[in-house]
């Protein structure tokens, strides 16, 4: 990290960083909130098309990804507890598990999108055009919202890797682990957004 030119001592306030993180999570929720508004308006305008389009999605893959994210939320929460207990090895193992699950989610997503695309269901495709406006909007929202969510997962992967490195180097340790806690909060947010996306796209038919 770059050093500050000037400030000889950076003042440390874990409570402040936690409030900051909560505020950031709040803005993220509003970001997705805008999309949920768009979703509900178009669903209201095209109820039948949205129902039929939702049938095209693979509930099994969606459920698998939901389970994966829920478990990963658990592992990262446990890593914070392990850190509080001073168990560095276990912390790293649990963070590693979270990382693995995040990657599994992305692999799943890759195959899911791939099969949709090979079937000709992607923005601007001939097939969607034949299906009509409702389906076009449904799949437009599907790719945009799950894509934005997947982007958050990728960012999470980068952050978790960075935290693992810092735990390994003991820059994050049992008396200074606000970074780990905030990463956990971020990951729960990613999980939470998925909990809304999953029923809206896969289950509500």
């Amino acid at each position: 990290m770059e050093q500050t030119s000037g400030n000889p001592h950076i003042h440390r306030d874990d409570e402040a960083s936690k409030i900051g993180m909560w505020l950031f999570i709040f803005t993220e929720m509003l970001l997705f909130g805008g999309l949920f508004i768009v979703y509900s308006i178009y669903r209201y305008l095209h109820p039948v098309a949205f129902e039929l389009a939702a049938d095209e999605l693979d509930v099994l893959v969606g459920t698998a990804n939901t389970v994966i994210l829920l478990v990963s939320s658990m592992t990262i929460a446990m890593s914070v507890t392990a850190m509080q207990k001073g168990n560095k090895k276990l912390t790293l193992a649990l963070l590693g598990a979270t990382l693995f699950l995040a990657l599994a989610f992305l692999v799943n997503k890759y195959f899911e999108w791939g099969s949709k695309i090979s079937y000709g269901l992607y923005p601007g495709s001939e097939r969607l055009h034949e299906f009509g406006h409702g389906d076009t909007l449904f799949f437009g929202l599907y790719y945009f919202m799950t894509g934005l969510h997947a982007l958050h997962i990728i960012i999470g992967v980068v952050i978790i890797s960075a935290v693992m490195y810092r735990v390994h180097k003991e820059m994050v340790h049992p008396t200074k682990y606000a970074l780990l806690e905030n990463t956990g909060l971020y990951w729960h947010l990613v999980d939470l957004i998925w909990i809304f996306l999953f029923p809206l796209f896969y289950l509500v038919t």
Partner: peptide, 30 residues
């Protein structure tokens, strides 16, 4: 904090609209 994310995601939608032809705001796509 409260207002900016909404315009942020709206601008992202415009970007997606231009690059991927998604149809959020395009009457010809619904």
């Amino acid at each position: 904090l409260i207002a900016t994310p909404i315009v942020g995601v709206t601008l992202l939608m415009i970007i997606a609209e231009r690059t991927l032809n998604i149809g959020f705001f395009d009457p010809s796509l619904g």
